[in-house]
Design a protein around this nucleic acid. Structure first.
Length: 888
RNA sequence: GGGCGCGUAGCUCAGCGGGAGAGCACUCGGCUUACACCCGAGCGGUCGCAGGUUCGAACCCUGCCGCGCCCACCA
């Protein structure tokens, strides 16, 4: 729902429309930036390099809020560095996302044409995926432009590009030669639906309901009871294992026992892996379908028949279950065992951990299979060491532990995938069992009987090379020399293991110990307004494009930055984005006011600034310093929040209001225009990295210059803090607030001017009348007129300021609401008494006065004094109130 | 089973040893010549529970309760 408000004023502010309309302007501005080449890096510039490589979005579809988070934070960092004079490069690109993309295209193919990839054949299918990539990739690039991503489009990369493919092939070859990749028959995770091997982290475990069935193997004295959650695997049992020290079974070790249903005799072996306290202390051993059993089988030389393939019992198992689906087989085998009286016990439901394919949720089948692996131990050790010795730092630091736990306990990485979309493994097999790995510039062996490996590499293999391959490796390019190691990696903590660790391993390996990035910043996940994970099935996802359409890209970016605390998830709702949109509107209107009143950044700052001037210039300096410190520490939320409050609560609510009086006085008008221009200029620059569009329009209107994108960061903006001036402004604020409160309690309309006499300003150290003085400020902000003829005060507002009491006598033109005033003063009195009581309690404790630091004690004493003064003042006012008239 | 983290205003979250905060929501006023996507004034919290340390604890320690996440070859 968009409301268009009628313009309330048509005073022109240097061509600025009365309303900020992001939808009309953003695309134009973005194209202008790109055309101007602002985002293009120049390794020969001589400026210090700053580089971030994008976490490449998958070409599976379109960007979601998680990407918007990556992009916002990266853009904030990059735009700021560019303004700080760095040769800033944000390198864009996309990931082919092997299995994910292949699945998407396969599903579409099935839905639209009722065909499988096998119907098309490898070559034609891969062509289809490329077509999809063109379409989906285009969508993503368009979305990045909508977000305002300041990326260097001339350096855009894709993981299946020629150059990146060469990098993949080169690394594979190097690792092959170094013995870091190997081909072996191991138990791997097989997804029967995707029909490919998966690495360990592509398997999600969940507690599922199943069954635990205890089966008696053997007869009589030789009988052993084993328990299993997967009855059907007993078809592939080749042994029963017991603990070596388990006396219950000692007599059976080494002997044969008959495997029911199948009828073959299998040995009882002693293996320390078995926990004698668990269940019966005896385990059935299915080496081809369980990682533990595989190890046991290996230690004892047991046969390893595969009895399940592609999710069904293999034909040729020699049983009547041949070809039966694995879950049907589970039931059928169980019933057969039951018929034979073999089932001793059953527990159902039985909760246990079951692996699922992270892509399609199908139950994973552990399977003995010939695959390619990366020997990770040396790589992982190097990855751990680089963080341990500080070559790379992880923010927030708490996530380091997770990183170490992972790299220090990593299993070998299964990298071959039985897919078609990806980098084909560059290995050729010869007729006599030759295995030849081929580099990118080498010709593969040809001739009778030679063929290339059918499989492709895990998509994370190429993503892991992203920071080096995108910069040109294996060629020795200026970019690589200039931007590697990259400055920061910004990504979600959820892909720490998938991606960050792999990049560390590869980067260190390929680049001789130079890590791929100096810092890693891990942000949290975006959740819905109640902190729940966003998911399509829950129906609580929000499309970033819809938010941009309704509120503007700046609003979305501001919301994300404002909610991003290191490592913590953030809840996002349209209300938050609307609030951010309101902020951009506020900034817009404040700028219009300033411009409409002749603000200029080119004017010299006043030689005799007012207190308000000194205060806001001092605050500006502090805010700039604070913003820098926070952003250096990746505290996006706090940095953004600080700018929000400075803009709204200080600049708009107070300085602009104070400026109105100053502008009306010739003595201060020019100075005020200069201060307004100066503060606005710096503020727009500080906000630009977060909200680039609106700040660009406003800043160019203010300065008439080309673009805020390439303007220097406002390091010297503002002035050193002036605590005395700031204290006087704080006093004025208190005064104004107290008078406003009185007016509200008395029901005096906000716009109505009230005649008033102000006493005690000079004595309180606030000066008297005069340009930029406290009196003028108070009268302007509290809407007080000078006492004219016939001034007849009906009420007094008295405020005890640090320098003394100030009395404001008001002529409300008639009797005041005594009850309301009594209530207001009563609340003040209660508060003051409570303060006094608290202070007395502390000061009455000798241990406190003895042990607490002197400044703390002094602070409490000060508060006690102030409370006493307050109480006296308020009691005086209460006593002076006229008697309440009796009313019903 | 191991590890990490979180429980603070109705909601989402900051604060992490010395006067309980923000945004949104809510109440009451208000077309106050930048802004009603606004302005002004308010209401709202035994800071999960119980102990302990300390002159002083939302903040440090211990235990408990509740929730979340990560890791793990629990047959």
């Amino acid at each position: 729902m968009t409301e268009t408000l009628p313009p309330r004023t048509d005073r022109p502010a240097r061509g600025l429309p009365t309303q900020w309309n992001p939808g009309e302007v953003e695309a134009v501005l973005y194209q202008r930036w790109v055309d101007a080449g602002y985002f293009e890096a120049d390794p020969g510039s001589g400026r210090p390099p700053f580089c971030i490589v994008i976490p490449p979005p998958n070409v599976t579809g379109s960007l979601h809020l998680g990407h918007a988070m990556d992009h916002t934070l990266i853009d904030v960092l990059t735009r700021r560095r560019r303004m700080q004079g760095y040769d800033a490069l944000w390198l864009p690109g996309m990931d082919h996302a092997g299995i994910a993309t292949q699945n998407v295209v396969e599903r579409r193919l099935a839905k639209d044409e009722g065909r499988s990839r096998h119907d098309l054949g490898r070559e034609a299918f891969v062509e289809r995926v490329w077509a999809w990539k063109a379409e989906s990739g285009g969508t993503i690039l368009g979305q990045m432009r909508r977000l305002g991503d300041g990326v260097d489009w001339s350096r855009e990369r894709f993981t299946l590009d020629e150059g990146l493919s060469a990098a993949v092939q080169t690394v594979f070859k190097k690792m092959f030669d170094d013995g870091l990749v190997y081909r072996a028959e191991r138990i791997i995770n097989w997804c029967p639906r995707c029909r490919t091997a998966l690495s360990d982290i592509e398997v999600d475990h969940s507690e599922d309901e199943g069954e635990l069935v205890s089966i008696r193997y053997g007869e009589g004295e030789d009988a052993i009871v084993v328990a299993t959650t997967r009855v059907e695997t007993m078809l592939g049992d080749t042994g029963v294992a017991v603990h070596p020290d388990d006396e219950r079974y000692a007599h059976l070790v080494g002997r044969g026992i008959e495997l029911p249903v199948v009828g073959r005799t299998i040995p009882v072996v002693a293996d320390a892996h078995v926990d004698p306290a668990f269940g019966t202390g005896a385990v059935k051993v299915t080496p081809a379908h369980d990682p533990n059993d595989f190890e046991i089988g290996r230690r004892h030389g047991l046969p390893m028949p595969s009895i399940l393939d592609e999710g069904a019992v293999v034909s040729g198992s020699g049983t009547r279950f041949d070809g039966m689906d694995r879950f049907a087989a589970r039931e059928a085998v169980r019933e057969e065992l039951r018929a034979q009286g073999r089932i001793v016990a059953e527990k159902r439901p039985y909760l246990h951990s079951v692996g699922h394919c992270s892509r399609c949720d199908t139950v994973i089948e552990p399977r003995l299979s010939l695959q390619w692996f990366v020997k990770v131990a040396p790589l992982a050790r190097a990855a751990g060491d680089a963080v341990r010795d500080g070559r790379t730092t992880i923010h927030p630091k708490e996530l380091e532990k997770r990183y170490f736990d992972w790299v220090d306990n990593m299993h070998d990485w299964t990298i071959s995938r039985q897919l078609w979309w990806g980098h084909r493994i560059p290995v050729w097999y010869g007729p006599d069992g030759e295995v030849v790995c081929v580099g990118p510039d080498e010709r593969p062996p040809s001739g009778e009987g030679w063929y290339q490996d059918e499989d492709v590499l895990d998509t994370w293999f190429s993503s892991g090379l992203w920071p080096i391959s995108t910069l040109g490796w294996p060629r020795d390019t200026p970019d690589l020399r200039r931007y590697y190691p990259t400055s920061v990696l910004v990504t979600g903590y959820d892909i720490l293991f998938f991606w960050v660790v792999r990049m560390m391993m590869f980067g260190l390996y390929v680049m001789d110990g130079a890590p791929p990035f100096t810092h890693v910043y891990l942000h949290g996940l975006i959740r819905d307004q109640h902190g729940r994970k966003m998911s399509k099935s829950r129906g609580n996802t929000i499309d970033p494009l819809e938010l941009i359409d309704e509120y503007g890209a700046d609003a979305l970016r501001f919301t994300i930055a404002r909610g991003s605390n290191p490592g913590a998830d953030m809840a996002l709702s349209t209300e938050w984005v609307a609030g951010s949109r309101n902020f951009t509107t506020k900034l817009w209107n404040a700028s219009r006011f300033a411009l409409g009143n002749g603000a200029s950044a080119a004017l010299p700052l006043p030689e005799q600034p007012t207190d308000a001037d000194r205060w806001i210039l001092g605050r500006l300096r502090e805010v700039r310093e604070q913003t820098d410190a926070l952003l250096e520490d990746y505290q996006f939320a706090k940095a953004t929040e600080g700018l929000y409050h400075f803009t709204w609560d200080e600049f708009c609510d107070w300085y602009l209001e104070l400026a109105k009086a100053q502008l009306a006085d010739e003595a201060t008008a020019d100075g005020t225009r200069a201060v307004l221009g100066h503060v606005l200029d710096a503020l727009l620059k500080l906000l630009h990295p977060v909200i680039p569009f609106v700040t660009e329009v406003l800043w160019t209107a203010l300065t008439g210059e080309e673009s805020v994108v390439v303007t220097p960061w406002p390091v010297g903006a503002g002035a050193p803090a002036d605590p005395a001036a700031a204290a006087r402004v704080a006093d004025v604020q208190r005064l104004v607030t107290e008078v406003r409160r009185f007016r509200t309690e008395q029901g005096i309309a906000g716009g109505r001017r009230v005649a008033a006499r102000v006493e005690g300003l000079a004595a309180a150290g606030l000066g008297e009348a005069g340009p930029g003085g406290a009196d003028a400020a108070l009268r302007s902000l509290a809407r007080l007129d000078a006492p004219g003829a016939g001034f007849a005060p009906t009420a007094t507002v008295e405020v005890a300021l640090s320098g003394g009491p100030v009395r404001v006598e008001l002529d409300t033109s008639g009797a005041i609401d005594v009850a309301a005033e009594r209530a207001r003063l009563g609340r003040d009195l209660a508060a003051a008494r409570k303060e006094l009581e608290q202070a007395d309690r502390k000061l009455g404790n000798p241990k406190f006065t003895e042990k607490a630091p002197a400044d703390v004690v002094a602070g409490i004493r000060g508060r006690r004094e102030a409370a006493l003064v307050d109480i006296e003042r308020v009691e005086g006012r209460l006593a002076a109130l006229p008697a309440e008239r009796q009313s019903s």
